[in-house]
Amino acid sequence: MKCIAGLGNPGRKYAQTRHNIGFITIDELLHRNQWKLEKEKFHGLYTIGHMNGEKVLLLKPLTFMNASGEAIRPLLDYYEIAPQDLLVIYDDLDLPAGKVRLRQKGGHGGHNGVRSTIDQLKTKEFNRLRIGIGRPSNAMPVVDYVLGKFHKEELPDVVNGIKRAADACEAWMQTPFSQVMNEYNQ
């Protein structure tokens, strides 16, 4: 079984914010497969289904962003999913809005949700899918920017990025991650 965890903050207040692009991508996958997040365990809301012939667990941690790993690790342990079969989807300030980048391992790059996941898993060896949210163009504090909603002019790129990210997730169900990286990082 594989696990796709979209990072974000629970609650209506954060629903369509930049920091919740991981949750929004999980919503896209749920919509495509006509699934619902019907299970709750270990501070996570999730479902298990089959996508392109592969059993997959889709997860939204309910711990808030900075403690995401506290929901991811117990579910991986419970379902005996190796970190190499995990894909974490999250926002990236250093990529233009909607740009998608995949990596097989690495550091947290300043992202607290990824930092928590690394700390909990005790490894940096898990797959990542970053979706660009861009940087604030003015003196707005980063925390206000990431917890803000997308601007109208960004939405076409963001929607395309979410769809491309969901396509990459689906491709990973039947293709080695390194090949998915080669295709979707172009």
Rank of each mutant, 00 (worst) to 15 (best):
K2M: 14
N9V: 07
R12P: 02
R12W: 13
R12K: 14
H19M: 03
I21H: 08
I24Q: 15
N33V: 00
W35I: 01
K36T: 13
L37G: 05
E40P: 00
H43Q: 15
T47F: 05
T47I: 05
M51V: 14
N52H: 14
V56A: 12
V56R: 07
L58V: 09
L62K: 07
F64M: 04
E70H: 10
E70L: 09
I72D: 05
I72W: 10
P74S: 04
L75Y: 11
L76E: 14
D77A: 13
D77T: 13
Y79Q: 04
I81P: 10
Q84E: 15
L86Q: 06
L87G: 03
D91Y: 00
D91F: 02
L95C: 05
A97I: 05
K105Y: 01
G106F: 05
G113R: 06
V114N: 08
I118P: 02
L121D: 07
K122V: 03
K122W: 04
T123R: 09
K124P: 03
K124T: 15
E125H: 13
R130S: 11
I131L: 13
I131T: 10
G134N: 10
P136A: 09
N138E: 15
N138I: 01
A139C: 06
Y145M: 05
Y145V: 12
V146C: 06
L147H: 08
G148D: 12
E153W: 12
E154R: 11
L155G: 05
P156G: 03
I162C: 08
R164K: 15
A165I: 04
C169M: 07
E170V: 15
E170C: 09
E170W: 11
M173H: 13
T175A: 02
N185R: 07
N185H: 09
